[in-house]
Every structure is written in structure tokens, then in C-alpha cells.
Write a protein that binds this DNA or RNA. Structure first.
Lengths: 109, 109
DNA sequence: TGACACCATGTCAGATCCGACATATACTGT
DNA sequence: ACAGTATATGTCGGATCTGACATGGTGTCA
């Protein structure tokens, strides 16, 4: 969208500790970043549970290792779309995706 | 991604009746289309509840009437990303988005 | 130390998506 | 029938995203 730098900072570094506080993010931007980070986290968890490397996951979803790394990092160049598609490709159901999104866990650190 | 035509057919016309059956969609493609249609439906419901026109919603989320129409139709040129951002811009919370995704309602018709 | 496996980060060409516009269709009320 | 309002559909230039590649970093094992 507009500001890439800020989102990069937001996504990385502050995922631990409660997400998005003091950078000037509007409420919906905050919610969007949070949602994305949860998907990112969910993807990594699912991959590790399946004992796959990023390279193997990449092959499975027809992407590349570097993009998988970016997905799991919540990189701003990765969309919710791609995260969702990857989770589904890994066998997650629609409802599992929903659970990942609403999970009350992540920000606690 | 790849096939635009098929998804257009899938998204429209067969949303009533249980979603994606006889077109050759892989399970994850099916799940993706379903998820998208639920978000589309959720967006429309939320707009109508607020008694907004597509034009008004478009202005609110800094888009255009035509794109809002496409969003609500689950058009293949609309990403999950955009649907999610629009819902959040309308004031939906992350959890509401999750509920919309997992809602057991839509396909029954 | 070197070799190896895994993950992170930067870059880029090509693919995809977005907002905007034009236009079409549907439904009112007059 | 006409005007007005709301929604649907097609198209397009420019913006954004994606996969691929190169490269750097870290841990492990001999």
C-alpha cells in the first residue's frame, strides 16, 4: 500500500511484546498487521509440526524458500492472500485458518 | 494466479447450492474460494447493516464503487487481502473476521 | 577449519491486483 | 417513458506482489 518501511519495522522486532503500540498506526492498520502476524506464526507452527524445511514447504506450495521465509516473518511484501493460500495448501481447513486468526495467544510473548 | 475464467464461474452462479462441486478444483482451491465468498458475504452484510451504499463504502475505504461491487461478488480479481482490509476499515475486529471465515452458514443456501 | 543444512535478506522481471472510468442493468417514483 | 439511484461488468495504466536467484548468517558435525 503506502508505507513499506514502517510496516517492516512493525512486523519485525515488535512481534514480541504485544504488537503495534507506539508507531502511528490507525486501528485498522494495527488489526491488519496483527492478523497477518498470526497467520505467519500459524504457518511456521504448522510447518514445524510437519517437520518440513522451508525449502520443502516452498516446493509443496510451488514457491521458493526465500518467500516462505518472508511469509513466516510477516514481511510487508507478503499478503494475507498468500499466507492463507499456503496454509490451505498445507492442508489446513477454512476453520483452522479462522482459529489461527482469532487465537488469543501470540501477543503475550 | 492461473485460471481466471473458472474461478469467475465458480464464484458467481454457484455460490448458491454448496459452493464448488463439479469444476475441477483441488481441495485447497475449493477452500480458498469458499473462504473468499464468506468474506464477500460478510462485507455485504456489514455494509447493509450500516445502511451504506457501495459508493459510500467505497469512499470510506478509499476505493471505488466498482471495486466494492466486485468485492461483494467474490470476483477473482479481488484478493482476500482487500476483503480483509475493507472489513477492518469498516470497524470489524480480527475476531469478527475469523467468525466470518468460519461461519457455518453460507453454502446451505 | 571446512563442509553442509537451514533460515534470512536484498533485488528484480514478470505477473497480478487496484482504483478509476465508462457503461450497462435493475428498480423506483413520477 | 423519463429521470434518478443503486449495483454490475469491462477495461486499462500504474502500483504492488510473486517466484527466483544471489548472498549472508548461524549452527552442527567431523
Amino acid at each position: 500500500m503506502r508505507e513499506a518501511k514502517r510496516k517492516r519495522l512493525t512486523a519485525r522486532g515488535w512481534k514480541i511484546g504485544g504488537a503495534t503500540e507506539f508507531l502511528g498506526l490507525s486501528p485498522e492498520e494495527e488489526a491488519y498487521v496483527e492478523l497477518k502476524l498470526r497467520l505467519a506464526d500459524g504457518l511456521r507452527k504448522r510447518r514445524l509440526k510437519s517437520r518440513l524445511t522451508q525449502q520443502e514447504l516452498a516446493t509443496a506450495v510451488r514457491s521458493s524458500q526465500s518467500r516462505v521465509a518472508k511469509m513466516e516473518a510477516g514481511d510487508p511484501t507478503v499478503t494475507v492472500d498468500l499466507l492463507v493460500r499456503s496454509l490451505l495448501a498445507l492442508g489446513a481447513t477454512r476453520r483452522e485458518v479462522a482459529r489461527i486468526i482469532s487465537s488469543g495467544a501470540l501477543p503475550a510473548a
